[in-house]
Design a protein around this nucleic acid. Structure first.
Lengths: 116, 116
DNA sequence: CTAACGTGCAACCACATGGTTGTACGTGAG
DNA sequence: CTCACGTACAACCATGTGGTTGCACGTTAG
């Protein structure tokens, strides 16, 4: 299984996208069953445009992918990105456990442009 | 092992806190070794106040805990919250796998106040 | 005791975000 | 062909965020 790696900017986008309950709910929905943007919009008490923007945020974070089907845009989850985020958190936990074997790579990547 | 559950608002705070590279770096640092706020601030090319605010954000998300020691405030990671976030992502992945056995609870909690 | 240290917080600024309404445009149904 | 549908996007507004500087305050070193 190829595990996609997240660069720092991509990690920013993924976690920022997941930091909104509506967007998490959208991800949960399309994980179970793909849906058109309009079908998603019908499920929430906000304008279509608001939902469409949420989907765009998820798309930019590669948490969902859109696929045109007729005049509809079908949204489905990109589980690889979710898995990459989960793996990142697992690595943080291993960092805590003291298993810093190869994890330095992760840190080196994460620290790029941060340290003084 | 008691796994702390994240309510929707708490999940917002955790992912929002993790959506910043500086804050992820701070978490990684204190996972390996606890550090005072000033010691952390010395590691970044920004003002002390900026770092102090980052630590405050992490603290509100319960990703770190501060403990006063003399006139210093020692920051250490709260690995339980990281684990809770990782578990949440794992549950999303299981949702995708079709293992919706008991996961409905997760969704029910997450959907509160979202669905129309 | 006094001075320096470590911390927290307020005020401010530029910019991002989450929502709205309105408009535009391609596509498919009839 | 025409028109409704599904989508995208711009403009706008209120609020949040990440940075700054400056000040206040408790604590410890000397």
């Amino acid at each position: 299984m190829v595990v996609r790696e997240l660069d720092p900017a991509g990690t920013d986008r993924v976690f920022a996208a997941l930091a909104d309950a509506t967007r998490r709910d959208i991800v949960a929905r399309v994980l179970r069953r793909e849906a058109s943007v309009t079908a998603l919009a019908d499920a929430y008490a906000m304008s279509f445009a608001a939902v469409q923007k949420h989907v765009a945020v998820l798309e930019r974070a590669h948490l969902v992918v859109k696929q045109r089907r007729g005049r509809e845009q079908i949204v489905h989850a990109d589980v690889a990105t979710i898995r990459a985020a989960a793996r990142l958190l697992d690595q943080y936990e291993e960092l805590w456990r003291g298993r810093v074997d190869r994890i330095e790579d992760l840190l080196a990547a994460e620290q790029e442009g941060n340290a003084s």
